[in-house]
Simulated scan of single mutants.
Amino acid sequence: MLSRQKNRGFSHPDHHLNLLGHAWILWIEDKPLELIDKTLRDSCTISEVSRCLHVALLCVQRVPEDRPSMSSVVLMLSSDVTLPPPKQPGFYTERSVSGSPLRTRPCSANNSITTIEAR
């Protein structure tokens, strides 16, 4: 939502990560404003963008117990409560450089891949 981009089809000239991986890189490099859409930059507050990204990264933790509940998310976004540091997201993909742009390889800690099958 901050970037106004879809995870599917996201590309960046400096790496082959999807949008979640890109957001993580910007977080660890302390560049949260680079994630948001250019049309929103002039009307936002750096601390609010940083906090939204921080909460979003907490919501995509690999271990479900590390993810906040929705009531906690509301509290985190509506107050100045201290947030725990996010860990590296558990699930994001890196597109294969040699393969098709839609081919991905898993970058999760457990290297799992979810396959959707019809009944």
Rank of each mutant, 00 (worst) to 15 (best):
D42E: 09
P32C: 02
K31C: 09
S43K: 15
P101N: 02
T93V: 10
A56E: 02
Q5T: 06
V49C: 04
R8E: 14
E48D: 12
E94D: 12
V63W: 03
L75E: 15
M1W: 13
E34W: 00
V73C: 01
D14Q: 10
F91M: 03
N7S: 14
R103A: 15
I46F: 05
T114C: 14
P64L: 02
P64S: 07
A118F: 13
N111P: 00
P86L: 07
T82Y: 08
L35T: 11
M76D: 10
P84Y: 10
L53D: 03
P106W: 04
A23L: 09
R105A: 13
V74H: 09
L35M: 08
I36S: 01
P106E: 11
N18I: 00
L26G: 08
R41E: 04
L35R: 03
P32A: 05
G99N: 09
L57K: 10
G21N: 00
R95E: 07
G9V: 07
T93D: 14
F91Y: 14
G90P: 08
E65P: 00
S50T: 11
A109G: 14
C44D: 02
T82H: 14
P64K: 06
N18E: 04
L40R: 11
L35H: 06
P85K: 14
L19Y: 00
K31T: 07
G99E: 15
P68A: 12
E34K: 11
D37L: 00
V97S: 11
V49A: 04
S108F: 01
P32K: 02
K31W: 03
D37N: 10
V49L: 02
D30Y: 04
R119Y: 12
L19M: 02
I28C: 13
P101R: 00
P32R: 08
A118C: 12
S47N: 07
T104E: 11
Q88M: 15
P84F: 05
C59E: 09
D66F: 04
V97K: 15
N111V: 04
R105N: 11
N110P: 07
C59I: 03
T82G: 01
A23F: 10
D42H: 08
I46N: 10
L20H: 08
E117F: 05
H54C: 01
N7D: 07
M70G: 04
S3T: 07
S47A: 11
P85V: 08
S43N: 12
E34P: 00
L2S: 15
E29C: 03
N18Q: 04
